[in-house]
């Protein structure tokens, strides 16, 4: 698995809740439409600006709140990784289980501004601002977690292990 990523950065603040990323009204929508409402109130219009390979850098207590799978929406938009000074553990697990790397890096928001380019390695546990050269250490993910990411998430892993029929048209989306 390639654990080195480079991407354009978007910075958000502390305690961004799941209600701010996957509001209740979006839970009634198919995933591609629901994804258009991430940060609907915090950063209106953001989902038009974000692109494939981008990296979201957040502050402390990122993803406080519900079990709703926000990571599926980030993946729908092509976001390549989440970085936060601190993750809510349920939110972090959701990211991993949806095949979205999530790296904890204290001090990350001070090292980046919107539009900067970041390089990171989520197995080695570091992130670098390519323009300033600032390199910060992060919490490397344990091997068990890297295995889930290597499989592309928990559902592909289960398909590989024979618990789900191999996807032909993808999981049911209503």
């Amino acid at each position: 698995m390639d654990t080195l990523l480079t991407g354009r950065v978007w910075v958000v603040g502390d305690s961004v809740t799941t209600d701010a990323m996957y509001p209740a009204f979006a839970m009634k929508l198919p995933v591609p439409e629901a994804a258009r409402h991430i940060f609907y109130e915090l950063r209106p219009g953001w989902t038009e600006q974000v692109g494939p390979g981008d990296i979201v850098v957040a502050g402390r207590n990122f993803g406080l709140g519900s079990s709703r799978p926000v990571a599926a929406l980030f993946r729908e938009l092509g976001v390549a990784a989440l970085v936060a000074e601190e993750f809510n553990s349920l939110f972090l697990r959701n990211a991993i289980n949806h095949g979205l790397p999530a790296l904890t890096v204290p001090g990350a928001t001070a090292a980046f501004a919107d539009g900067d380019t970041a390089r990171l390695d989520f197995a080695e546990g570091w992130i670098e601002n390519t323009a300033t050269g600032t390199r910060l250490p992060g919490g490397a993910l344990p091997p068990m977690v890297l295995e889930i990411l290597a499989a592309g998430g928990i559902l592909p892993k289960l398909a590989r292990e024979g618990y789900i029929a191999p996807p032909t048209t993808g999981p049911h989306r209503s």
């Binding site: 079990s67 799978p69 349920l90 289980n97 949806h98 928990i154 559902l155 289960l158 618990y163």
Partner: peptide, 15 residues
């Protein structure tokens, strides 16, 4: 007891 995402609950259901 703790909350887990739907994908992880699905995984525990299986394994």
């Amino acid at each position: 007891a703790r909350g887990l995402g739907p994908a992880e609950i699905y995984s525990i259901l299986c394994t």
